[in-house]
Design a protein around this nucleic acid. Structure first.
Length: 368
DNA sequence: AAAAGTCCCAACCGCAGAGGG
DNA sequence: CCCCTCTGCGGTTGGGACTTT
């Protein structure tokens, strides 16, 4: 027994809305609001429509300040970056794009943006399926592939953006960061401006706390940190806070939903902030790593597509050097910080940020 | 010119969660 | 708790518009 339908589908009009229906709905809502009950709304207005249909029509088309089509390059980049970071959470993505609806963005992504950015991979996949596998194994692969497409798309997009050194990538676009305290935001922004005047386009800042015990530890930690060992100079992104500013920063972190001494989550944007004794990092949603784990390990045993074959299949992986591949393989090992993770948004494996490559791609390391 | 194929997007569907009784 | 209603969300579909053959 399924649940009762929200309306009598046989007796309500479906399909495209007429101008008269639009006018009725718009006039009523502008005068009286929705009344908190969409189901009852069409009857009040005298519309022979389902309440859900009215709601959708209003939200996606009739409400004020809606924009359709004509996505700008900036919006493209924002959608891309957010998709990479949080996946197909269209309502959250739409919230970052004033005047855009989740439906619009979803359609735009599915029909244009994805093709634009992933066209090469799709073609490659199709060639593989049709030329190298029989029908059954191909179906199996397709089925498994469906489960992991999102994560792999996101990963590849991430790589592509990084390769392009896109100025609107997550790392270089403060608009995409979680709602960090103004103090921290300002510091990072200042730092970015300095960075972008220099030769290093990819941001990899560190953040230090000056004149504090933590800072004394920092020098040692910094020297041995992955960030410091990267080819990018370790001093190009060194931010300092005095004790007062640091305390204000910590005390002002109110927009997180959970926190401990070591872990703060911003689930609305899918970013975690890890505060280790000497280091703060912003890291994207861990879900992508879980999905990646699943997708890279699928069908390991049935021969339809080995992990290595699948890795080879994607352009983004082909472009990666051996070190980065090693990083991917190392994403799932346990590490000492697991016990310190306090919320449900904690990383299953935080060793990712200790590995060169992904950790540098995905996180800002802020030495404290 | 017309048939076939493809693109695009408004609208629909079903599920999950919130909240009230 | 349990049940029910309502809302919001993401995935999917139908069909008109456009392009290609």
């Amino acid at each position: 027994m399924g649940r009762a339908p929200c309306c009598d589908k046989a007796n309500v009009k479906r399909g495209p809305w007429s101008a008269e229906e639009d006018a009725k709905l718009k006039d009523y809502i502008e005068k009286y609001g929705t009344g908190g009950n969409w189901i009852a709304l069409p009857q009040k207005i005298g519309l022979n429509r389902c309440g859900k249909s009215c709601r959708l029509r209003w939200l996606n088309y009739l409400r004020p300040n809606i924009r359709h089509g004509g996505f700008s390059e900036e919006e493209d980049n924002l959608i891309c970056s957010l998709y990479i970071s949080i996946g197909s959470r269209w309502s959250i993505i739409a919230a970052q794009l004033p005047g855009r609806t989740d439906n619009d963005i979803k359609n735009y992504w599915n029909t244009k943006l994805k093709k634009k950015l992933l066209g090469r991979r799709r073609q490659s996949l199709l060639n593989c399926s049709s030329s190298t596998k029989d029908a059954n194994s191909s179906n199996d692969a397709k089925s498994s592939q469906t489960l992991s497409n999102s994560a792999l798309e996101r990963l590849q997009l991430h790589m592509q953006l990084q390769n392009l050194q896109n100025p609107f990538s997550f790392y270089n676009n403060p608009a995409l960061w979680p709602k960090v305290p103004p103090l921290l935001h300002e510091k990072i922004t200042q730092n970015l401006q300095i960075l972008n005047e220099g030769p290093h386009l990819l941001m990899q800042p560190s953040l230090s706390r000056s004149s504090s015990p933590k800072n004394d530890q920092k020098a040692k930690t910094h020297e041995s940190s992955p960030a410091a060992s990267h080819s990018a100079p370790s001093d190009f992104a060194n931010l300092s806070f005095n004790d007062a500013d640091f305390n204000e920063l910590v005390n002002s972190m109110t927009n997180c939903v959970s926190s401990s001494d070591y872990h703060i989550s911003f689930p609305d944007i899918g970013v975690n902030l890890i505060d280790q004794p000497n280091r703060i990092q912003f890291l994207p949603d861990p879900i992508i790593h879980t999905e990646l784990n699943d997708s890279l390990n699928y069908n390991k045993s049935d021969g339809s597509m080995s992990q290595q074959n699948q890795v080879d299949e994607f352009d983004c992986f082909k472009d990666m050097n051996g070190t980065s591949r090693g990083t991917l393989q190392a994403l799932w090992c346990d590490d000492e910080y697991n016990a310190q993770s306090a919320s449900s948004y904690s990383w299953d494996s935080t060793s990712a940020f200790l590995c060169e490559g992904i950790s540098q791609d995905y996180g800002f390391g802020y030495n404290m």
